[in-house]
Design a protein around this nucleic acid. Structure first.
Length: 440
DNA sequence: CTGGGGATGGGGCCC
DNA sequence: AGGGCCCCATCCCCA
């Protein structure tokens, strides 16, 4: 005989104990704020804590302490509330940070819910279809999009494998996380360790969120771990508030008359004076509206901070391939047939390529002699060959120039579809770089 | 302090 | 859908 309410009751009791600091044997310090919790609950909920606590329990029986400086106390409150209640309070404002924190803490179910939350905002095609065929005179502000959705969030025990990026501090049972790497987003091919948003990126994201009005209503995601289901529930007050906000945004942004942003929806449409319905893809994080889904996907990278295109020459990462291409041409290739010093036109006969670190540029022979710089003694062809990725690698080439149709960079698989944020530590990335033969 | 130029990043849009 | 080009805004560096 099974009493169905037992699990929720047990969780409720544990949550009460946590709130009253009863039997709490673990302290988590987040940016100066102390959270009390039970190590067995944390152990069962997070791959990160699983590894941390399994180590600390071997070494000491003292209360374990974890310190985080990479996400805010508010974010950890959301995470901890979820652990103790199964309810994840996601909003358009916090979803990125919660996802990055969950990624760091190796809470795969939370990550997947965050992904679903984001994807539900981006699930354009279906909504587009629906909306396109039901573009009656229905009020566009109520957009007809049902935001409640089901999430598959079955508890994946052991799926979040502990990883070596955790570093133990000197003190017993105290763990400190290193500062995140500047370019912390890694694409699918590099998914070895979770990489939450870099603190710098997080600040940027927060900065952006501060000046961008979010039209997405607050949602509370309820996860039923026993059935692998989760539900979102809308706050009607939020919705109406958001609706007003959207109207305001529409006015502020000088949107053409008659055009209204769809509240919280990805695809918006409106009645233009000529009654031609025009579909738009609305960013769930700002008021930006684009015409194409691909443009929205590209735009979203400026919110997620995702930079899937690393420069193999200097390691700098770019959100777009064309930016990387442009960067490589301007910085690492001497494509411009202009003397950097005197700005005169130079050819291979009247000037030479000079390398300064990873930068290359051209100098005319006069400036070259004046500066006393040697021309680039590098066998370009051999170097290009050296830098080329493995043959047959699909999508790993991009054209640099007509005569240099060789691969300079390995295009890392775009992980935007998964929106998985991972963390590598500086040392790890350096190791990673060292392990890649193409990187100088 | 200021203006110019380079580098970077975002949006529109064509192929 | 992705790649790529063009345009523009912003930031930073330097003279």
């Amino acid at each position: 005989m099974e009493i169905s309410s037992h699990q929720s009751h047990l969780l409720q009791q544990l949550n009460e104990q946590r709130r009253q600091d009863v039997f709490c044997d673990c302290s988590i310090l987040v940016e100066g704020k102390v959270f009390k919790a039970h190590r067995n609950v944390l152990f069962a909920s997070s791959g990160y804590f699983k590894m941390l606590l399994s180590q600390s329990s071997k070494e000491t029986s003292q209360p374990a302490t974890a310190t985080f400086q990479t996400f805010s106390p508010d974010t950890f409150t959301v995470i901890l509330d979820f652990v103790y209640s199964g309810k994840l309070s996601l909003t358009g404002q916090n979803v990125i940070e919660v996802m990055s924190a969950a990624s760091f803490l190796q809470m795969t179910d939370v990550i997947s819910v965050c992904k679903t939350f984001i994807k539900s905002s981006l699930d354009i095609s279906e909504k587009e279809k629906d909306r396109y065929f039901s573009l009656s005179d229905k009020d566009t502000s109520s957009n007809g999009v049902d935001r409640s959705s089901l999430y598959n969030s079955s508890w994946q025990e052991g799926s979040a494998s502990p990883h070596s990026h955790l570093s133990r501090d000197r003190g017993p049972g105290i763990i400190r996380t290193k500062l995140w790497n500047k370019y912390s987003y890694h694409a699918a091919s590099q998914r070895d360790a979770p990489q939450p948003l870099a603190s710098e990126q997080r600040e940027d994201a927060i900065k952006k969120t501060k000046h961008l009005r979010l039209s997405q209503p607050s949602q509370v995601v309820h996860i039923k771990s026993d059935k692998g289901e989760a539900q979102t529930s809308d706050s009607s007050s939020h919705a109406s508030q958001s609706e007003e906000q959207v109207q305001m945004d529409a006015e502020v942004d000088s949107v053409p008359a008659g055009y209204q942003y769809g509240q919280g929806a990805d695809v918006t449409s409106g009645s233009f004076p000529d009654d031609q319905p025009r579909l738009r893809f609305k960013c769930p994080y700002c008021t930006h509206v684009v015409k194409r889904k691909a443009d929205l996907k590209r735009h979203l990278r400026c919110h997620t901070g995702e930079r899937p295109y690393p420069c193999q020459a200097c390691g700098k990462r770019f959100s777009r391939l064309d930016h990387l291409s442009s960067h490589f041409r301007t910085i690492h290739q001497a494509c411009k047939l202009i003397c950097r010093k005197c700005k005169r036109h130079v050819t291979d006969l009247t000037g030479q390529v000079v390398q300064e670190g990873t930068r290359r540029y051209r100098l005319c022979n006069e400036c070259l002699a004046e500066a006393g710089i040697d021309s680039l003694p590098v066998d370009l062809e051999a170097e290009q060959h050296c830098m080329s990725p493995a043959d047959g690698e699909k999508d790993s080439r991009w054209h640099l120039s007509e005569e240099e149709n060789r691969s300079y960079v390995e295009i890392v698989e775009d992980g935007s579809a998964d929106l998985v944020i991972k963390q590598v530590e500086d040392s790890e990335e350096e190791e990673e770089k060292e392990s890649k033969p193409n990187i100088r």
